[in-house]
Design a protein around this nucleic acid. Structure first.
Lengths: 217, 217, 217, 217
DNA sequence: AATTAATCGAGACGGTACGTCTTGTCTTGGA
DNA sequence: TCCAAGACAAGACGTACCGTCTCGATTAATT
């Protein structure tokens, strides 16, 4: 992303980077968002406050990056051989992440803050949203190879659909966990995935013909 | 909160209450949650900080109360004669609500705060979530009467399904607007509704061969 | 000086004022000017940093006032019955003050700072210089009553003379102690006072035979 | 940048030295002692901070060196044929020096610093004080040759008197300019010189009898 | 009408974190 | 071998806000 720039002077310590992000996550777990202070993070990381501010403009930006790393590590898309299983797995893996108080608190705090801070919103977008969108892209590609999904010719339509699916999956999980405040368990994940795959109207399509009820949960 | 007690002495000013809540909302819109300060709200309301703290224990409580009213209006479910149109309408109506900086900021602020405060989470659930869930129930009832959706016999399953649909609709819209930070317009609402009604697999089902239903497990 | 102003609100704590100035002087003695920090003073005084900054704009101003109080307490003009004894006493009392490291350091630091900061210079003038000038005025009044000095009719000339004498006494002592870095002892005080009273030319006038001194105006 | 030869690591020493000292003086004038920072000086001089620290141990040492040169020029004692004129001339010449912000700031900065640093005080004594003391010696010698002043037999007493006079002249001027913050003009110089020559008591001693005494202010 | 007691505005209080600055040292790569 | 550039640990600076605490001045309902 920024290979130019850095030319002269002492290079920044990669070790410090790591220590700071680790310390931030640890502090987040222990204290919760609002009680994490830059000074405390610096002390935990064995680093001067200056070193934090040289890398991140403020607490929000630091926490976004710390949270982004959690998402990078916490979310995976195992190839389970069928689209439904893949989606269920990623839903559960996302839910597991949001079940941790520090992830939950930090993510929402940062999103809330971003409603008034465009720079922060951009950082969230690039550091978290865009990176996790890859899960949708990879999942779709696999499903298309398996013949479970058709290939979209128009790349723009394909991109729009991917965005839509991402918002639907992430949005439903976040809303269930944070707003409705109900757990996301295997049963919910299965119902959600079925609905996402076959739609609300599925039951109707099949029902009239015979006895089979919709597989809607 | 509690009617008793008040006997002698000067009664609290109702006007002050109103001025404070108005000032809080105004400050929230202008500054965003984290930059709203009690001192600032007091100054806007032409009131002393003491007067705020005499009524609300802290910033959170004040903001929640200030925000609560906003969500009581704003969402309606017009009967447009077909399920798809009804869903699209409610999606757009919700999006319109979230497009106001006031609502957007307030909602996220309160939700973020609630990740740390179970009492606040309950308050949100009863004051906002449960009240809006009726939209799903009403919409489903209408669709069933029109024959667009089958009637679910088991009431528990029916309730679970309603919750799921609510989380999917509200979650997708919120995520689109606040996290992905993209607008919810008619086109998006249409795409979302189609996906919700017919599912991801629909393209495959309808496009290539013809009658073949999803063979999904 | 400012009887108006203060009308509403909680009045400032006189106790805090005292505690802060005491703490400042104590810190000055222990640590020396450059190592005194506002936070440290606040902690010693059992007071919040805010309380310091509500009264003094910065460290310099605080130290000026702390030093001024030392001068107020440390300098007196005992009535010893004759002008020469009075002057010698005040010279020695001033020298005793400057012998303390904290007074010396603090005074010079503040004066040095004031060469670039007009506000600070004014504060020094009103808080220290003008207040100690009273010693000259009182001493002259006494000497005039005793008949040791003539009464000046023109008040402007009288004021100018007082300023001149003040600069000569204070300047000589400060220069001796701080620049020449030699002690001011009884012997020096006696020599200085004699010179101040009778002038350089005195030796000539009284001593040798009678070579007429210069007719210098 | 520089024509001189570069073999293996011989510093551009001379040029860098000069640039640093110039930058230090400039910064001192512009910002005042306490706001001069090593980083700023380095930047002005187009030099790395390392280079400063390779030559001077700290800020004090650097500033003292930067300032030292200023006092080597600037003070002279023209032979005007009479003691009073000589004194007035040197007073005005000293005042002229202190009127320059550069000199004023630098002198006080260094003196202030010296209150905490005995080594620095010695350095000031030899580099500035002792060198200027010669003015007193020369002036006295001339006055004695003219018969304006008696010759002191005891060399020790003579030395002590010279020190006293030096402290009185330099001290009064410095105090007037820096502490009282009033200008030293011809009028003040005349009044000061008269007082120094004839003493406070002069008015009284001579006046009653009748012969016109000097109007000493 | 006088008394009473909780209200009001204003603003100082102890704390705590912020984000900036400077100091003096260390670490690069380039000449 | 030295230089410029700039990162580093340490720690003070002055500001902002929180939630509490005086103040003197209203202001109703109860005497």
């Amino acid at each position: 992303m920024n290979p130019p720039a850095r030319r002269t002077g002492r290079p920044r310590s990669a070790e410090a980077d790591r220590a700071i992000l680790d310390a931030t996550r640890a502090a987040l777990v222990e204290l919760g968002w609002s009680k994490v202070s830059m000074g405390d993070v610096a002390a935990r990381a064995g680093v001067a406050k200056t070193t934090l501010y040289r890398r991140w403009a403020n607490k929000n930006e630091l926490v976004v990056d710390a949270v982004a790393a959690v998402f990078d590590e916490g979310l995976e898309l195992p190839d389970l051989g069928c689209l439904q299983a893949d989606i269920e797995a990623v839903v559960l893996s996302f839910a597991r992440l949001l079940a941790l108080p520090e992830t939950r608190t930090a993510l929402m705090a940062v999103v809330a803050e971003s409603t008034r801070d465009p720079a922060l919103r951009d950082r969230i977008r690039t550091a978290i949203v865009d990176r996790q969108k890859r899960l949708v892209l990879v999942g779709r590609e696999r499903a298309q190879e398996r013949g479970e999904l058709p290939r979209e010719q128009d790349p723009e339509t394909a991109a729009r659909t991917a965005d839509l699916i991402f918002d639907m999956i992430a949005g439903a999980v976040v809303h269930r966990v944070l707003v409705s405040a109900e757990p996301v368990d295997t049963e919910w994940a299965r119902g959600f995935t079925a609905l996402l795959l076959h739609g609300l109207a599925a039951g109707l399509t099949l029902a009239p013909s015979g006895a089979r009820p919709p597989r809607n949960d």
